[in-house]
């Protein structure tokens, strides 16, 4: 990315301090995930019954859980799971939604069939679809990603479909079609480059929703295996001790909120700098 392009992308954040804060929180989370082993003061899985359910103090900043594990270390390590689930869901939604959306828009006959199938999938509420899939595939990390991803594949497809239809109708695309441009060239030259910005917006929102979806699955015991530290798992475990150890509820929950909120802020800021024609596809006009 050239310097000018970088400035263009940063502009919506500079104009909005709160969006900049969102970007900051997000980068912190990414750093925490990457540097987890070096950042966390203790082994996240080290059990020490003597200090179990210790409130936050100078040694254990976020306190300890029912096994005496250090909450701060577990919160930091959980960032990895959050990032993994989030990027997995986004990748799945894009990898399926983009080709299906583009092809549906370019080939109306195929599109008619595919979009009807998307309609059918959309008849299933997202969480229900995820639960059904988990039942079929069994609970695991990969399956949680697939299950959540399927729900956002539908919205991504619809958005890509709508955008591609608009792009296709635009004169320059018409012109290059009439000059005998091949479909692949058309997609690569005219459609994909124009989809990058709106897809970045969609990716931020999907990433945010994936955090909430994954937390719900974890909480129900149908997501990441319980031995892996994740914010959702931590909350599920904290339930029993809510009144005795409220810090176990507070810190992981705050992390989910902070991550989802900052992703939403970033997505919102990016959407506002989108071309108005594209903004409509996200249901916000003007």
């Amino acid at each position: 990315m050239s310097r000018d392009a970088a400035i263009l992308w940063l502009k919506p954040f500079i104009a909005r301090p709160i969006a900049l804060a969102g970007l900051g929180i997000l980068l912190t989370t990414v750093l925490a995930a990457l540097l987890a082993p070096w950042l966390s003061p203790y082994d996240p899985n080290a059990i020490d019954p003597v200090i179990r359910l210790t409130p936050p103090n100078a040694i254990h900043w976020f306190g300890t859980d029912q096994f005496g594990r250090d909450t701060l270390s577990r919160v930091i390590h959980s960032a990895r799971m959050a990032l993994l689930i989030g990027s997995g869901v986004v990748l799945f939604a894009l990898a399926t939604g983009v080709p299906v959306g583009i092809l549906s828009a370019l080939f109306p006959r195929l599109g008619h069939v595919l979009m009807r199938m998307i309609d059918v999938l959309m008849a299933f509420p997202t969480l229900l679809l995820a639960l059904g899939l988990i039942v079929i595939l069994g609970p695991s990390l990969t399956n949680a990603i697939l299950a959540i991803g399927l729900g956002y594949m539908t919205t991504t497809t619809r958005i890509v479909y709508g955008l591609t239809l608009r792009l296709r109708a635009e004169t320059y695309v018409e012109a290059s079609r009439s000059m005998g441009a091949g479909t692949i060239w058309l997609i690569g030259r005219h459609i994909l480059p124009n989809l990058i910005s709106p897809l970045l917006v969609q990716a931020s929102f999907v990433f945010a929703f994936a955090q909430l979806g994954a937390a719900s699955l974890d909480f129900l015991g149908l997501g990441a295996p319980p031995e892996i530290p994740s914010w959702g798992n931590m909350l599920a475990e904290s339930r029993t001790f809510v009144t005795r150890a409220p810090w176990l509820l507070f810190f992981p929950g705050m992390m989910i909120v902070a991550t989802a909120f900052s992703l939403n802020l970033v997505g919102d800021a990016l959407r506002d700098r989108l071309d108005p024609r594209f903004r409509q596809v996200f249901g916000e006009k003007g």
Partner: peptide
């Protein structure tokens, strides 16, 4: 609008657990 976005970013079960903690317990 910011508050609305924040509300949409909070897991319902977390809100639920806090409501229990405060208004029930």
């Amino acid at each position: 609008s910011g508050a609305a976005m924040l509300m949409a970013s909070i897991p319902t079960f977390w809100v639920g657990l806090y409501l229990i903690l405060i208004f029930a317990a």
